[in-house]
Design a binder for these strands. Structure first.
Length: 662
DNA sequence: ACGGTTTATACT
DNA sequence: TAGTATAAA
């Protein structure tokens, strides 16, 4: 898992931004009366009051912990407000939190390369921005520095609590500071500004760490919460790491960390320093070994990825204890729920980000009651992903049955086999941007009769739902090369290609809206009007004026429940507006759809006449030929069901046809 | 088998 | 590759 990367360019400026008890903040924005009250978000289990998945800071003061059940929390803190995670299709639905996370990402992505690390965490590479700032404004000449910056925690600076801010100001503006510390100071200024922007535009507070690499930035972001930022100076690194319990380091919280403790007696990061690279490589392999050696010294070359969107979508549920699923029928029922959720999210991703997923994977946990050794591993299975809830369900059921057979072994297939499923999940991965490219091959499939006819859709009719699917699959291949260059920068403006038109006419206005929007915003599309006219404007003014008055620009100011009373109402409107905007029709499987959910369009590769290719415009010929080349793979896949063109474009093939980043 | 549900990544 | 394992939030 940990992989050693050479420290490339030195003196990068990296920030890690971490939302404070994020789910709680989301709920407090939705229900402003909860602000200032001890609150926690629970996942409704009806067992002991549900499990807490986020705890607000007021409740933490009262001793409420994340590992508690709702009932225990009530005991410790009787006034606690427990908010349930929304439920849809019989399972927890995290949509509102995902969308809120995307709001934040779209703001943080403004200043530099941005990596969405989780639903509520982001890494930023601010190197260029910091260098630019330092170049044009020498820090020592800075006269006004925002309060929020002055409240930064500078590691290694006097803990003498008296005039903290003046000391920080002094540090920030020190003429003889190391160049790298000056860059950090610039980073801190930028991050403070970004955090204030996040607060203004989303009402969420966050904490941040500013350092020279991801590892240290991440470490620092958690050191002063909530709503504060921490700078890891060069000089502080050694003292910071030395006494740090080894398990606090990212990647060492699990078995590897335990091994270091029990096998090597390494309890702190400092303890690691005594081991030579060779020794560590010897013990843990060359990658992990050098990685560990670097960790001990605060060295980490991991790059900020520049990815605003998730790489996979999954939907899953556990069925603990007696609730374990014991019949295939029960499994199918729940697979249907999971697949519908997944399909909806895939559809949304396609519409708003123009991306398609290529692989479907089913995971399960199961037990056999015959084995007292209850928990066996249920094999995960995957297959090419076909769009449409019905197809995803069909494929998932097949994957499950394949897995079940393996799980149960040769036979034991009988009625009361005595097995149970305790966890089920479906995941869509290998998501690639479908080019909105100018060189769209789609029109040849839809527009040109000859080509269309020769390709012969394998089956009779196709559900409309499926249709647009194959369209996108097809297109995705074609344009892969041209797009892939900048990585998948999802929010590229899309022109109105034939694909876009097609999709737009087929889909609801939400998508139409999105294709015409020029905003480069990640996933969920905020209701722009609402945001800008209602909320955006208000907070904008608030902020503009705030910095003038002394001490008011602080982020803490926004935290006071009383001070934002005027905004509460608007906040409420806003959030319901958000919800509305995201309410999407769920694609339910009608009876008829299920009946003829035969495969959409399939083009049997073997049926494609070479002469057809020659009739294409030259620039497309090349493209198509590359698709047709790897016949071998196809054969393998063909036995079960006809191969589709989509199958040719298995993602790995991209790597050959795509000029990766040059 | 219970903090549950997601995501990511490396290894094989 | 697909499948497994580990880690984190």
């Amino acid at each position: 898992m940990p992989v050693a990367r050479p420290e490339t360019s030195d003196s990068r400026i990296i920030a890690h931004v971490d939302m404070d008890c994020f789910y709680v903040q989301v709920e407090q924005r939705k229900q402003p009366h909860l602000r200032g009250q001890p609150t926690a978000v629970v996942q409704y289990n009806s067992w002991k009051g549900g499990g807490l998945i986020a705890v607000g800071y007021e409740a933490r003061k009262d001793g409420v912990k994340r590992s508690m059940r709702g009932d225990e929390a009530k005991k410790v803190c009787p006034q606690i407000q427990l908010v349930q995670v929304p439920v849809a299709r019989g399972k927890a639905d995290l949509t509102i939190y995902r969308n809120a996370g995307s709001e934040v990402v779209s703001i943080l992505a403004r200043k530099g390369r941005c990596e969405r690390a989780s639903i509520d965490e982001v890494y930023l590479d601010l190197t260029e921005a910091a260098e630019a700032m330092l170049k044009e404004t020498p820090l020592e000449s800075l006269e006004s520095i925002d309060e929020e910056v002055l409240k930064s925690h500078v590691l290694g600076l006097s803990v003498n609590g008296n005039d903290e801010k003046e000391i920080v100001r002094e540090w920030l503006t020190r003429r003889d500071a190391d160049h790298r510390d000056k860059l950090l100071a610039c980073g801190a200024i930028i991050v403070a500004e970004l955090r204030m922007q996040v607060l203004r535009e989303t009402e969420f507070t966050c904490s941040a760490g500013i350092a020279h690499n991801k590892m240290l930035a991440k470490l620092a972001s958690g050191m002063n919460k909530p709503a504060q930022q921490t700078i890891v100076t060069l000089a502080s690194v050694k003292g910071l790491l030395e006494p740090l319990p080894i398990k606090k380091m990212k990647q060492l919280g699990g078995k590897l960390g335990s091994s270091l403790q029990t096998d090597l007696g390494v309890d702190t990061v400092g303890d690691l320093l005594q081991f030579s690279v060779e020794k560590l490589q010897d013990l843990y392999g060359s990658n992990t070994g050098t990685w560990l050696w670097n960790v001990a010294r605060g060295i980490s070359g991991d790059e900020v990825e520049g990815r605003l969107l998730p790489k996979s979508h999954g939907s899953g549920k556990t069925f603990p204890g007696v609730r374990a699923l014991k019949t295939v029928a029960a499994v199918e029922k729940w697979l249907k729920e999971l697949c519908e959720e997944l399909s909806e999210r895939l559809q949304l991703d396609l519409e708003t980000n123009k991306r398609v997923a290529h692989t479907l994977t089913l995971h399960a946990h199961a037990y056999k009651s015959t084995d007292t050794d209850s928990h066996k591993k249920f094999p995960s299975k995957s297959c090419p992903l076909r769009y449409g809830a019905g197809k995803i369900l069909e494929d998932s059921v097949n994957l499950f049955q394949a897995g079940l057979c393996e799980f149960l072994g040769s036979y034991m297939n009988s009625a009361d086999g005595g097995w149970g499923i305790t966890n089920l999940s479906v995941t869509a991965s290998k998501i690639v941007a479908v080019p909105s490219g100018t060189c769209s091959i789609t029109k040849y499939f839809h527009g040109q009769d000859r080509f269309h006819a020769s390709l012969e859709p394998s089956d009779e009719k196709f559900a409309p739902e499926d249709d647009n699917l194959s369209t996108s699959m097809t297109e995705s291949r074609s344009a892969s090369h041209q797009t892939e260059i900048g990585g998948e920068q999802p929010q590229i403006t899309h022109d109105t290609s034939s694909f876009d038109q097609y999709e737009t006419t087929c889909k609801d206005e939400a998508s139409a809206n999105c294709s015409t929007s020029k905003h480069h915003e990640p996933q969920p599309r905020l209701p722009e009007k609402e945001r800008n006219t209602n909320d955006g404007k208000r907070s904008y003014e608030q902020k503009r004026k705030a910095p003038k008055e002394k001490g008011t620009s602080s982020i803490l100011r926004f935290l006071q429940p009383s001070s934002c009373s005027s905004s509460n109402q608007e906040a409420k409107c806003l959030s319901s507006g958000v919800q509305e905007a995201f309410g999407m029709e769920s694609e339910s499987l009608t009876e008829s759809q299920n009946k003829r959910r035969t495969d959409s369009w399939r083009y049997n590769v073997d049926d494609i006449d070479q002469s057809v290719v020659e009739e294409l415009p030259p620039e497309l010929q090349e493209e198509v030929r590359t698709w047709l080349r790897p016949q071998k793979q196809v054969k393998a896949n063909t036995e079960k069901r006809g191969s589709s063109i989509a199958h040719y474009f298995s993602p790995n093939k991209n790597e050959h046809t795509n000029p990766k980043k040059s």
